[in-house]
Each structure stands twice: as C-alpha cells, then as structure tokens.
Amino acid sequence: MKTLLDTKQLDITLQRLAHQLIENHTQFKDTVLIGIQPRGVWLSDRIAGLLKGITGQQSIPYGKLDITFYRDDVHQGNEIHVPSQTEIPFSIEDKNVILVDDVLHTGRTIRSAMDALIDYGRPKSVELLVLIDRRFSRELPIQPDYVGRTVDTIITQKVKVYWKEKDLKDEVVLID
C-alpha cells in the first residue's frame, strides 16, 4: 500500500482545484457543480464548501447525479445496482456544468454521467474535475479538465480515497 496524498497534501490539492475553478469561472454566474454519486459526492461537497469560503458567494448551484440507470454494464455483473439519490434542484439548460468524481479510471462512469446529464437538459458546456487520474487505463476517449494528482497504475491495483466525514481520515492510497 502506498500513500498518494496524505491529509496535508490532500488539503493543498483541494485548495488548488478550487482556485483553478475560480480562475476559469470567476463569478460562477452560469456555472454549476455536479458530484457523481456515490463517491464523487464526498469530493464535490468539499469543493463546494471551499468555493463558498474563497469567493464568499453562498449561491453556487450544487447538485448530485446518480448514474446507475445509465451504466453500460447493467446486466453484466451478478448484482443489479441499487441507485443513490439524484438531487439537481436547478435547471442545467445553457449552464457550464462541472462534473466531479473522485477517481477517473476507464472513463465509463463519466460516459454514463454525460448521458444522464443530457436527460436533464442541454448544458452549454461540460467539464470534468477528478481528484485522481489513473492515466493509461482509459477505455474511452475521455480526459479530465482539472486533476488533483495523476498516477500510473495497473489494472489490478486499486485507488482508495478516504474522507474524514465517513472514514475519520483524509487520505488517498494505492492498494496492490
């Protein structure tokens, strides 16, 4: 097991990601943040909190998207997935959407997320923010716009992200 980001590094990385978002979306006038259920939401919660803190703006639209019904492997595993909640209490029509997920691996989750998103309206643009980019393991032509840390991994390895809200510690590790 190898630590990719410890508590301090994770904090610095999140701060940087938040600042990069502000750099590109100064006032967040037409920009909305959408975390992908279930694990991307821990990250998007943090990012949304940081953005509020830094910009002093309380009204950055923030939603959560469940992609279960849009997966391309609905009937391939042994278990059918039980969905999490989707909460998008605003229109995404003509908005710049920032999709947020913790780990980008094959790109299939993001493909599903884009399909799910489009069923809620036609956004002006969609960007992708991830904490960990497992480069070279993509199965679809999908690349992130904002990256916390890029890592080279092989398929048998696992990246695990711990959040203090549920795991009592902030850490990202690579498990062999």
Binding site: F69, Y70, P83, Q85
Partner: peptide
C-alpha cells in the same frame, strides 16, 4: 428507495432511462 429515484425520473422533461 429505487422507486424514489424513478419517481424523480418521471418528473423530468425526459421521463426515460436506458437501463433496460
């Protein structure tokens, strides 16, 4: 729990998912 999700789907403009 699953029906909660579908109820929300049914309130959207596009009342359909590709799952099946």
């Amino acid at each position: 729990r699953t029906a909660d999700n579908f109820k929300q789907v049914l309130q959207r403009q596009i009342k359909k998912v590709p799952a099946l």
